[in-house]
């Protein structure tokens, strides 16, 4: 993909929320996304992983225009979404669709499946001629693994997996080039999740659509994505190809996250090899100075408090925002507790 213009480019994106002061809580500005740069190329799947509150969903909402950025740029196809005239923006918005996590909340309960899909064409007249609507609905439903007799039913008559298929069909109705999947499979049961993941891959193969796949599930991201970005407290701490991130993670947070992520193989590994971080993620209202991860990091030194590390390819081969990046020492050479923050 190198050399080609990226489809989506976030450059130094900042999105903040103003918090009203409440009882026992000071007001202030929360920078949920605090300067994020990220690219997605055509036909590519980029994974964005991080824990709740890290800002990954805010990025999703900013990209699709639900939230206005307070700094930086969102470029789509080389054009700055913040500087486009309204009419052109509306046209361009079609190209970026989103599939939300909760298939029970993201479909209007008062609309039939056919109407949910046709709504897209009512909003964008001219996309599909009216006399073709019924045929197109059938085609889309088939495309996502549903049947045409489902068209007249309401969302509550479907299971979670089927609803997520409806959401995908609805997103596809405007023929997007990028679909942002915000925890799109997280609410589904294992066997159903695999069906949806396979569907997403199949759609990409057939339609060439790109995905920004936002998830907390590292196993799923590893399965689906070409490139991965890891977020912590509003910033991207490490980006790289899937192999780089999973085989040679260099940021301590990535390492901890990978170690903590449960996998089918965990019964084989010795639990003393786990990295278990202490404490909780600090409040984004008052992030730590310097490196935001330093309060939970076992490699932190004075420099981490004073100076914020910029993402750079130190000698890691891929961008890492850490002053002291490095491979994990192989477990056999470490004493059980050295460098591990375990809680006793």
């Amino acid at each position: 993909m190198a050399g080609t213009e990226p489809l989506l480019e976030l450059s130094d994106l900042v999105t903040s929320y103003r918090l009203r002061p409440g009882i026992g809580r000071p007001g202030g500005e929360v920078r949920a996304v605090a300067g994020v740069s990220l690219t997605v190329h055509a036909g590519e799947t980029v994974g964005l992983v991080g824990e709740s509150g890290c800002g990954k969903s805010t990025i999703a909402r900013t990209i699709v225009g639900l939230v206005r950025p307070s700094g930086g740029k969102v470029l789509f196809d080389g054009r700055d979404l913040g500087a486009l005239p309204a009419k052109e923006l509306r046209r361009l918005r079609r190209d970026i669709q989103i599939v939300f996590q909760d298939p029970y909340a993201s479909l209007n309960p008062r609309m039939t499946v056919a109407n949910l899909i046709k709504e897209a064409w009512r909003i964008h007249p001219g996309l599909v001629p009216r006399e073709r609507w019924d045929d197109e609905v059938d085609a889309l439903l088939e495309r996502v693994g549903l049947r045409s007799e489902h068209a007249g039913r309401y969302p509550h008559q479907f299971s979670g997996g089927q609803r997520q298929r409806i959401s995908i069909a609805r997103a596809l109705a405007v023929r997007p080039r990028l679909i942002v999947c915000d925890e799109a499979v997280s609410a589904l049961d294992v066997s159903v999740r695999a069906q949806i993941l396979n569907l997403l891959q199949e759609l990409q193969r057939d339609l060439g659509v790109s995905y920004l796949f936002i998830s907390h599930d590292l196993g799923v991201v590893r399965h689906l994505c070409d490139r991965v970005a890891v977020m912590y407290l509003g910033k991207i701490v490490e980006t790289g190809s899937k192999e780089e991130i999973y085989r040679s993670p260099a940021h301590p947070y990535t390492q901890a996250l990978l170690s903590a992520a449960p996998s089918l193989d965990d019964w084989r590994t010795d639990e003393s090899d786990e990295i278990v971080l202490t404490g909780d993620v600090p409040s984004p209202l008052s992030p730590p100075t310097g490196c935001r991860f330093r309060t939970r990091c076992w490699r932190a030194q004075d420099r981490c408090r004073d100076e914020e590390p910029a993402p750079a390819e130190r000698d890691t081969g891929h961008p890492v925002a850490c002053h002291f990046p490095g491979a994990l020492p192989p477990p056999t050479t470490t004493a059980p507790d050295s460098g591990r923050l375990t809680k006793e």
Binding site: R61, V64, G65, L66, R90, R93, R94, I96, Q97, I98, F100, D102, A105, S106, L107, N108, P109, E119, A120, R122, I123, H124, S167, R170, V174
Partner: peptide
């Protein structure tokens, strides 16, 4: 702020359509 309203916004629906339909 329900998600199905957000999803109409992402689709490009106007304020009038969202007010009347959602």
């Amino acid at each position: 702020d329900r998600e199905f309203v957000d999803s109409a916004r992402v689709m490009g629906a106007s304020h009038a359509r969202i007010l009347a339909g959602y």
